[in-house]
Simulated scan of single mutants.
Amino acid sequence: MKKLCVITLTGWLLTIGNQLMAQCSLCTKTAQQLGEGPAKGLNNGILMLAVTPLAIIGFLAFRWWQSNKQA
C-alpha cells in the first residue's frame, strides 16, 4: 500500500509540475501587467509561501501516523 501511495503521488507531481499555477485571479491580472519575468517570480513567491504551512501539516501528520502505528 505504501508503494502504491508513493508511486501515485510521484506520478501526480510529475504530470502537473509544469502546469502548476498558484495565482488567484487578482494576482494573475497583476502578473499579466508586469510581464513574463516578474510574473514567474510572483508565481514562485506564492509557491514558496505555500510550502511552509504544507510542510508543517505534513510533518504533524507523519508524527501522528507514527505514534498511532506504534500504539
Rank of each mutant, 00 (worst) to 15 (best):
residue 1 M to K: 13
residue 1 M to F: 10
residue 1 M to C: 07
residue 2 K to S: 06
residue 3 K to W: 12
residue 5 C to A: 15
residue 5 C to S: 13
residue 5 C to P: 00
residue 7 I to L: 12
residue 8 T to L: 14
residue 8 T to I: 13
residue 10 T to E: 02
residue 10 T to M: 13
residue 10 T to Y: 07
residue 10 T to A: 15
residue 11 G to P: 01
residue 13 L to I: 14
residue 13 L to H: 12
residue 13 L to T: 11
residue 14 L to H: 04
residue 16 I to L: 11
residue 19 Q to H: 14
residue 20 L to G: 06
residue 20 L to W: 15
residue 21 M to W: 09
residue 24 C to S: 15
residue 25 S to K: 09
residue 25 S to N: 10
residue 26 L to F: 09
residue 26 L to A: 13
residue 27 C to Q: 12
residue 31 A to T: 02
residue 31 A to V: 02
residue 32 Q to M: 10
residue 32 Q to G: 09
residue 32 Q to D: 05
residue 34 L to W: 11
residue 34 L to C: 07
residue 36 E to M: 05
residue 37 G to Q: 12
residue 38 P to D: 03
residue 38 P to Y: 03
residue 39 A to F: 01
residue 39 A to Q: 03
residue 43 N to K: 08
residue 45 G to E: 02
residue 45 G to C: 08
residue 47 L to W: 07
residue 51 V to A: 04
residue 51 V to E: 00
residue 52 T to I: 15
residue 52 T to Q: 04
residue 52 T to S: 05
residue 53 P to Q: 03
residue 53 P to R: 04
residue 53 P to M: 02
residue 55 A to L: 13
residue 56 I to H: 01
residue 56 I to N: 01
residue 56 I to G: 00
residue 57 I to T: 10
residue 57 I to C: 04
residue 57 I to P: 00
residue 60 L to D: 05
residue 60 L to W: 06
residue 61 A to S: 09
residue 62 F to G: 00
residue 62 F to N: 02
residue 65 W to Y: 14
residue 65 W to P: 00
residue 66 Q to P: 02
residue 66 Q to E: 12
residue 67 S to V: 08
residue 67 S to T: 13
residue 67 S to H: 13
residue 69 K to F: 11
residue 70 Q to F: 08
residue 70 Q to C: 05
residue 71 A to F: 14
